[in-house]
């Protein structure tokens, strides 16, 4: 579905991504785990076109994403929930959801999608008219996820959805991710919370300073001594 081959990304003189290859197959949850600054977010930004790659290929269902303008990517069925939520904080919850459906033109479809998001996140329905900036961190994460779902994505890129949330909310967010997956959405998940990420993933890649250090079946990685020492704190 999504294939990245020999990707290199530079920020000025800094070589942030050093020849990474990875793939996400239809129906999988794939995690990218690794320390701060390993390049996880950069990979997602490059896939979405927010950051330009130096070399390498990124294809999604055969379409070259490196030459696709960022605002066209959502039309291909790929949505991105950015790190730090990035909800439109001065707009209402409802307006945020409508922006999520910006690429849709069918008003009936938009209405249905809003209902679908409200069903998954009842708290957003209660707060539909509230300004997004006044929501709690967990609610903002729900809004950012709901907003991405508004465009009926087939694949969801999720960047640090658990960041800054209390342990109870972290559980809730991962439960939501698992539910989305059951509904048939493929997920590429970036997480610092490696334990939670591995527990719901089918496969994972371990990133270290711009390169893939390890990859494989999530359950096996969880048993790997190096992974346990470095990322699971055991």
């Amino acid at each position: 579905m999504l294939t990245i081959k020999d990707l290199h990304v530079h920020y000025g003189a800094i070589h942030a991504i050093k020849g990474i290859s990875l793939e996400v197959n239809d129906g999988e949850i794939v995690s990218l785990i690794g320390a701060n600054g390993a390049g996880k977010t950069t990979i997602l930004h490059t896939v979405s076109g927010l950051v330009k790659a130096t070399s390498g290929t990124i294809t999604y269902n055969g379409i070259n994403l490196r030459t696709t303008p960022p605002h066209k990517i959502i039309d291909l069925g790929m949505a991105h929930v950015p790190e730090g939520r990035h909800v439109f904080s001065r707009m209402t919850v409802m307006e945020n959801l409508r922006m999520g459906a910006y690429s849709l033109t069918d008003n009936e479809q938009i209405k249905q999608n809003i209902e679908m998001v409200f069903k998954s996140f009842p708290r957003l329905k209660e707060r539909a008219k509230q300004i997004a900036g006044t929501l709690s961190g967990g609610e903002q994460q729900m809004l950012a996820t709901g907003r991405a779902l508004m465009a009926n994505p087939k694949i969801l890129l999720m960047d640090e959805p658990s960041m800054g949330l209390s342990p109870i909310l972290v559980k809730e967010i991962f439960h939501i991710i698992a539910t989305l997956h059951e509904k048939g959405i493929t997920i590429l998940l970036v997480e610092q919370n490696a334990k939670m990420a591995l527990s719901i993933s089918s496969r994972a890649y371990v990133l270290e300073t711009g390169s893939i250090a390890m990859s494989g079946n999530a359950a096996e990685l969880m048993e790997d001594d190096r992974v346990r020492k470095a990322y699971l704190g055991v």
């Binding site: 927010l50 605002h71 991105h80 950015p82 990035h86 922006m99």
Partner: peptide, 11 residues
């Protein structure tokens, strides 16, 4: 408010 997030919405 947020150009990157807007692009991700398809704007």
């Amino acid at each position: 408010e947020d150009k990157n997030a807007s692009m991700l919405m398809g704007i």
